[in-house]
Design a protein around this nucleic acid. Structure first.
Lengths: 349, 349
DNA sequence: CCGTCCAGTGGGAGCGCTCCCATCACTGGC
DNA sequence: GCCAGTGATGGGAGCGCTCCCACTGGACGG
């Protein structure tokens, strides 16, 4: 191998070892303790000392070593976002994407870093090992399914955590935020009933997610209360394609249907497409209502009437619940915040 | 506030302070140094000692403190994935999603953790501060645009990094992987020409991303070589909706067009929809070819002929380039790997 | 039988930081 | 004029780990 000539130096070129607090302190003419206080915004520091330290920090380009800091503070200032989702579907779901962005924004505002933990089914051991070794101060879990027993495991680890969407198990042991999906499904259905629909189908979500089941339950409750039939249940996987397929089948089974309650906007958009193909006019022939009110509804033809999920506020609350557990020495404990859903009327119903 | 009775103990219940290496060592009857060697798989440890340490680890549920470890090793065993993307579009693009998953998988296989850095335009300072404080061992950057001068900044930080997609600036100072997008655009266009198309349009990608520009360049080169007109340029934003709009406009401008080269599969899918609406048969009336070959092409009607981007291999190589810089003490340096694109023939052309 | 070697081991330093506590110079009240 | 009180400071311990280095004892060759 050819020898490359380079300036002989103990330090790698351009990568001088980072300045330490000691260097900052001595440059500022104060002790390490004072420098630390000045940097961390503590009081009990004279204006003179603080100014000197700040100048030294700037001149040296000092940046605290996070490992050393967290060794003593026992804080890492980072939070895991756990996504126990085997396939990439989550990323194409605006609900998830907006949740991710909301959580990220909230954390950034508090100078916390988000660590993304994508866990495929086999990876649970790795996941739990990571969380167990206190790499992060806490975890936020989204899009969990019946079969991962994540809530159980996290409760056992005693790691502060917050679920977005009610966990299947240990719902009384961990903190979570959610919306009232039964009420939402019910409200959506009642809207169609009020508008005169009598043959109302639903395109339900996956059977292993709480949100899907609850919205279906609400749909059913509204129909029964109005003495209408609740036999028209199609199933989708929260994708546009799934919604389209389900709508086609429903149309075949019940050509007389005049209303569709979809468990997500994406599925409602698919249904809209199937209806257009079948020559049905929305909302005159068939009224359609979606769920979530994010990303999709404004772009469909016609614009989608939907049930609004306050995603931003949910993400905010989840972070808040998490931080409360992290900061209070009482540690992890169950807390919950349930948001009411809200109807958003546009043109499809 | 009601007082809650609880067993008086110095330790929070269920949250005894984590066992340290010292405790493991004394339980195993060896020194801390030997325990460390046994745990880290070093040799120079007798079978007896190793077994004793492993037993102690298991009994105590010991897990090394990452902060303490990285304080001395100067490694954090985590890597940042930087996404300097202002809006959520990235997440709906299968290309990005698969890249994310590929990178995550590669890192997980090496026991490295992925830290997601979503940077909105204003956040650059925060981003650079984070990267500069050596929170992570290196960074992988995707979906960067002309205006973020990320490559310049990272080169200045001397932090190991790898770009996916050629950076706009400092391309000779940082490592990156890419595919030959000019060749791909050219090959796609030549396929249409061979098949007999004579009036070939393109739906180009954003003008501030290298991939979009290069594919357009390839399209143009192929047409010129065949002495065909290269005036039919539509613009999309890599989304399905954008592709549909662009295709509509192109059809209006040139009703006689008989081929469309789209710069992404998502845009090709949109074009397919526009063509169907216009009553054109694909590929008989109009041949369509996409780009990327991930997620979309199998699901369209008809299935999409496309140019394959080896996303998995690109992610793999990016991680490899990064690790090479991290592990070799030579530090960050420019390296590049360019993949050849490959045509994948299905039914749309 | 003694020196040499080496696998195996433990002592101890030190990574860069925070925070407890002792110290010190001042101030103001009696 | 002295002492308690107060704000600012620095010394030093210690967080949990890795790794350098010195040490040990048994195997082995001369």
């Amino acid at each position: 191998m050819p020898r490359v000539s380079r300036p002989s130096s103990d330090l790698p070129p351009g990568q001088a070892s980072a300045p330490t607090l000691d260097e900052v302190a001595s440059r500022a003419g104060v002790s390490r303790a004072t420098a630390s206080r000045a940097i961390n915004g503590g009081d009990r520091v004279s204006a003179t000392a603080r100014a000197a330290v700040e100048a030294a920090v700037r001149e040296l380009g000092y940046t605290p070593n996070p490992a050393a800091r967290s060794l003593v503070t026992r804080r890492t200032d980072s939070v895991a976002l756990v996504v126990p989702e085997p396939d990439e579907r989550v990323f194409s779901d605006p609900f998830f994407v907006h949740t991710l962005r909301g959580v990220n924004r909230m954390l950034a505002a508090r100078d916390l870093q988000l660590v993304l933990l994508l866990a495929r089914p086999g990876d649970e051991r790795r996941l739990l090992r990571y969380l167990g070794s206190r790499h992060v101060d806490g975890a936020i879990v989204v899009s969990h399914h019946r079969d991962d027993q994540l809530a159980d495991h996290l409760a056992a680890l005693a790691l502060p955590c917050a679920f977005i969407g009610r966990p299947w198990t240990s719902a009384d042991r961990v903190a979570y935020v959610d919306t009232d999906n039964v009420a939402g499904g019910r409200a959506a259905t009642e809207l169609l009933i009020e508008r005169g629909c009598r043959r109302i189908a639903t395109i339900a979500g996956p059977g292993d997610m709480a949100a899907g089941i609850d919205r279906l339950k609400g749909w059913r409750a509204a129909l029964r209360a109005a003495h209408l039939a609740d036999d028209l249940v199609g199933h989708g996987d929260f994708t546009e394609h799934g919604g389209e397929m389900a709508a086609r089948q429903l149309l075949e089974r019940a050509p007389d249907l005049d209303g569709i309650v979809a468990a997500s906007d994406l599925m409602a958009a698919g249904a809209l497409r199937a209806l257009a193909d079948a020559g049905r006019v929305v909302p005159d022939d068939v009224a359609v209502i979606g769920y979530d009110d994010v990303g999709v509804p404004g772009r469909t033809t016609p614009p989608l009437t939907t049930v609004r999920n306050p995603i931003g506020e949910m993400a905010e609350q989840a972070v808040r619940l998490l931080l409360e557990q992290i900061n209070d020495q009482r540690g992890p404990r169950p807390m919950r915040v349930i948001f009411p859903p809200a109807l958003v009327r546009r043109d499809s119903a």
